[in-house]
Nucleic acid binder design. Structure first.
Lengths: 260, 260
DNA sequence: CGCGTCCGTTGCACATGGCGCAACGGTCGT
DNA sequence: ACGACCGTTGCGCCATGTGCAACGGACGCG
């Protein structure tokens, strides 16, 4: 399917690892260098790649342009940022914003920790569906059938001793998350980091993004982490409010559904 | 040359104008929708595009990822940013960072004005080679032959009454810029905005980027704008210094060239 | 409840365009 | 001056990308 296009896209991904010359790229893609060259020329013409003085290729500025546009097409990011920044300021911890794309959870924004201990992550990477707090929040809002389908499709690689390793475990966790309105990653992804995450709703009430706060265990123990939940939820609720969503009044027993 | 790839890249650019459906895109590219679909599937597989619930396509998160990487591959941006931010803080005006890519001058970073009057521009856009101050700075460092070639290739659309309209005019201007070490755009691009720009050098002394300050004429007249030059140059010199470049001692008459 | 329309999708057959090969030509470095 | 290294080009083959036409599911209207 679209061999040449896929090859070109792979070239871009390869170039993300750093600039490279023609042969290098050809070898990496295991195609003839002529082929690579022609693809690169097309990419260059549209400024998806540039060649520097030494004839090596690097990612080009068209990517900046498109990313910038894509960014403000995602109005969530712009709206969330000031709120997340405030939270990031007051707590000093790493803050992530993530959204569901297809069956992947993708980080779409990130604010760095002020503490010396940083965690590795990057905008555009996908989160582990069975471990990341943001993933739990986003999945928790999906219809049960879709949850089941996704849960069954996951490769449950145990990342730490706390990692959820079965579809049933995950589905149960999602139910909990849906009920309490926030999610915990208790060192399920990295042994020395734990996170909490909370949902962001759009005007129609659907969960369209999740914000999380990740903190090294050495800085804050479990109770300390959980103490952050109210502030985090307040923050995501503020974002949701900016998007036109108001938290429905917490009714002891909810009987009101859309009257038809 | 690489028809299918170019089509796919065009699709991405088209999607920058906002999400679109299959037929829309097919019409825009004037190809059969089947073709568009297969390209989009490939793009989707690599997450360069996403389809939302209503089957419309939007730019995907892979672009964020690549742009983020491309961004820190361009070490200039990261290094320049704090300096530009300081300048932006102290003056309050719009600051741009631009670099030469092939024969285009491209904005690679931007800091917004604090004043209510904003100017339109966007990271990734190309600057008018015969009008923008950053373009003058970047072109001024090129070898004469290349300057000539580029100058002859420009379409000298008169943007305002001050716009340079001939290759000779531009080349003369570039000589001035090279001599004085900074460039002025005296409302040559937009009647109500003028700018000054200064070069950023890498360790080998080559001009690899240019920073500019754009300000509405109503806020600051010509002398006022020129008063900013020393501060701007100090700023770009600081960036250059971070990149390992030291301003050569200003010799009254320079006779020292590379002794061969 | 059923029809019509609108879109995305699939199968197929054709020829275009992408591919590898091999030979060319520039630039360095020795 | 020679050789090694890369990017580039001409060429011929066939894989692959393309358009067409038919299918099918989702709405919406009557």
């Amino acid at each position: 399917m679209s061999q040449s296009l896929l090859r070109a896209l792979d070239l871009l991904e390869r170039l993300a690892n750093g600039p490279a010359g023609l042969d290098e790229l050809a070898a990496a893609a295991s195609v003839h260098k002529t082929t690579v060259m022609r693809l690169l020329h097309a990419l260059e013409e549209r400024r998806f790649v540039v060649r520097d003085e030494t004839q090596r290729y690097r990612l080009g500025s068209q990517l900046f342009a498109l990313a910038a546009v894509a960014l403000d097409q995602r109005e969530v990011i712009g709206i969330a940022r000031p709120h997340l920044a405030r939270f990031n300021q007051s707590t000093g911890h790493t803050v992530h914003l993530a959204a569901l794309e297809g069956d992947d959870v993708v980080y779409i924004d990130k604010l760095e920790s002020r503490h010396p201990v940083r965690m590795y992550s990057r905008v555009g990477l996908t989160a582990a569906l069975h471990a990341a707090a943001v993933a739990k929040v986003l999945l928790a809002d999906l219809p049960p059938a879709r949850q089941r389908a996704i849960a069954d499709g996951i490769d449950y690689v145990p990342l730490t001793e706390h990692t959820i390793t079965t579809p049933e475990g995950l589905l149960a966790e999602l139910a909990t998350v849906a009920r309490q309105g926030w999610a915990l990653d208790g060192s399920e992804h990295e042994a020395f980091v734990h996170c909490v995450a909370a949902p962001i709703h759009d005007a129609r009430g659907r969960v369209i993004a999740a914000a999380s706060c990740s903190v090294p265990v050495v800085l804050l123990d479990r109770p300390g982490l959980l103490d952050l939940v109210p502030e985090l939820v307040a923050c995501t609720d503020a974002v949701s409010a900016d998007l036109g969503w108001t938290r429905p009044p917490t009714t002891p027993t909810q009987n009101e559904r859309t009257p038809s």
